[in-house]
Structure formats: structure tokens, C-alpha cells
């Protein structure tokens, strides 16, 4: 292959890997938004907890599969607690108030982690080694395949869940019209709880997948959370496919931007693109074009 194409392929691999992580975080935002119209700014902390708790369990001598399970379970529990103790109590508060509650939750979780697990950076071992795989001259590490594979599996699972199970349909119904859902017997509070649990699960999975590449740290969720939010908005808030498209697109924009234009302004470029998209499509790429209710 000509070198220019190999270079492009390399940029795409790199962008897809980051993009898949953004997509997982964005899906977490979308799930909670759908169920409650809350933007959960503590989503990044779920990502952080996934990685940090896995590391903590590993350092206690627990095996990797068990450590991952434990970390996901604990993160889900924390997600449920956040919903039960904070969001549910403030259900009727203003949107901005809810944002601040979740920002506060994020600060609290970061503080808690730094006190209990320390402030050091930690690496997780790669799931299947670090030997690069050569694909048409471009290279990929096995962990990237794990990230892409798990992300794809999560998408399929979510698709099946929402379209083929009663519970999944109940969640969708609640997001479309909470009152009507309640009338036909959906337990709206339970749906809310479930969506926080699921989001926490997605966040934890993303955090665990990426930790072998980037290392984990009690503040690693700040930027990942922000990027995930950006991806969710880019795709269209509340849209599952939108979150995935937004995430992958964001990763690719960053990678191509750094590769072809300027690495100095890579992060800014992502936001410029998002602003540009919003100016022309005020509900994101795949968001619902709703008329405002009066």
C-alpha cells in the first residue's frame, strides 16, 4: 500500500480506539438522559472507578477476571446509590440544579477515591499482551481489538435489550412519555434506577478497557467524561446510535486533526466541529427534532 494510505489507516485505527471509549461513555450519558432528562456529570467518575477498583483488587492479589467483575459490580452499586440517595430526592428540581448535584457527586467520588485508593497513576496489564498486530502496514495493539470488540458487543446487547425485552421497552416508553408509561404500569422510579445502574456499568467497562493503554488515576474521569458528553451531544442527546456515531466521529476527528492539521489545536478542533454541527443541526446528528412543548 502507498505510504499515505498506510498513514491514513494508522490515524483511523487510533481514532477508532479512542472513539470507541468515547462512545461507551456517551452511551452512559444517553441512557440516563433518556430515563430522566438528567445530564450526569459524574459519568466520567464511573469510568475512573472501573479502572481504579480493578487496579485495587489486582494489587490485593485477586485475578484479573474477578477483579474486573468486582470493579463493575462496585461501580454499579455506586451508580445505584447516586440515583437513590441524590437524584431521586431531587427529581423535581431544575435542570441546572440537577447538573450541579451530579457535578458535586463527581467531586465527592474523586475525593473519596483519592482518600481510599491514593493519588498515584496505575497501569492495568493488557488483556492479551502488547505485541503489535500488523494490518496492511499499520499497527494495532491487541487491547485496541478488545476495546472495539467489547464496544461492539455492548451495542448489540443494548440493541437486543431495548428492542426485545419488556424491561428495555419499558425504559424506552418512559423516556418518550413518563406519564403514559406510568399509566400503563411501568414503575418509573425503577426504570430510573436501572438506567443509572446500566450507565455505571458502561462507564466501568470503558474505564477498565482503556486503563491498560492510558493508565488510571483518580482524576482520569474528568476529561473522558467531558469528551463523552461532547460525543453524546454531537450524535444527538438520548439517541443510542447517535452516541456511538458521535463517539467514533469525535475520536476520528481528533486523530485526523492531530495527524494532518495541528496537534496543538487537536482538542479545540473537536469542539469547533461540534459547534459547527450544532449551528446547522441544533439537535445533533441523529437527535430527535422535537417541537417545544408549551
Amino acid at each position: 500500500m502507498p505510504p499515505a494510505l498506510v498513514e491514513l489507516l494508522q490515524f483511523l485505527f487510533s481514532g477508532l480506539t479512542s472513539g470507541a471509549i468515547y462512545a461507551l461513555v456517551a452511551l452512559g450519558f444517553a441512557l440516563i438522559y433518556n430515563a430522566s432528562h438528567v445530564i450526569n456529570f459524574a459519568q466520567g467518575e464511573f469510568v475512573m472507578l472501573g479502572g481504579m477498583v480493578t487496579w485495587a483488587l489486582l494489587s490485593q492479589g485477586v485475578g484479573l477476571p474477578l477483579a474486573i467483575l468486582g470493579a463493575v459490580a462496585l461501580t454499579v452499586l455506586i451508580g445505584l446509590a447516586l440515583e437513590k440517595l441524590a437524584i431521586e430526592r431531587a427529581r423535581n428540581a431544575d435542570v441546572v440544579t440537577l447538573i450541579i448535584i451530579t457535578v458535586g457527586a463527581g467531586i465527592f467520588l474523586r475525593g473519596l477515591t483519592s482518600v481510599t485508593l491514593g493519588k498515584d497513576l496505575h497501569a492495568l496489564p493488557a488483556f492479551s499482551g502488547n505485541d503489535p498486530i500488523d494490518i496492511l502496514g499499520a499497527t494495532l495493539i491487541p487491547q485496541s481489538l478488545w476495546i472495539l470488540g467489547v464496544t461492539a458487543a455492548v451495542m448489540v446487547a443494548l440493541h437486543l435489550f431495548f428492542n426485545h425485552t419488556l424491561l428495555g421497552k419499558a425504559i424506552l416508553a418512559t423516556s418518550h412519555n413518563p406519564l403514559a408509561a406510568r399509566l400503563v404500569g411501568v414503575n418509573v422510579n425503577f426504570v430510573l434506577l436501572l438506567s443509572f445502574g446500566l450507565s455505571a456499568l458502561l462507564g466501568a467497562v470503558a474505564g477498565i478497557l482503556i486503563a491498560p493503554i492510558t493508565a488510571t488515576h483518580f482524576e482520569v474521569g474528568i476529561m473522558l467524561g467531558l469528551k463523552g458528553f461532547a460525543a453524546a451531544i454531537l450524535g444527538g442527546l438520548g439517541s443510542g446510535p447517535g452516541a456511538i456515531v458521535g463517539g467514533l466521529l469525535l475520536g476520528i476527528i481528533e486523530s485526523l486533526g492531530a495527524g494532518y492539521i495541528s496537534s496543538e489545536y487537536k482538542d479545540a478542533m473537536a469542539f469547533v466541529v461540534i459547534l459547527g454541527v450544532l449551528f446547522f443541526m441544533p439537535s445533533g446528528l441523529l437527535g430527535k427534532r422535537g417541537t417545544e412543548r408549551v
Binding site: A86, R89, A90, N92, A93, D94, T97, I100, I101, V103, G104, A105, G106, I107, F108, L109, R110, G111, L112, S114, V115
Partner: peptide, 20 residues
């Protein structure tokens, strides 16, 4: 000291929950 952020986050949450 190291509990600063925990307390700050907690205060933000509690105030906003009970005084929305």
C-alpha cells in the same frame, strides 16, 4: 487537607438536594 474535595462535593449535593 485530603478530605477537602469529599466535603466540598458533599456540601454541593446536600444543599442542592434539600434546597433546590
Amino acid at each position: 487537607a485530603s478530605y477537602e474535595h469529599m466535603i466540598l462535593g458533599l456540601i454541593m449535593m446536600v444543599v442542592m438536594i434539600f434546597m433546590p
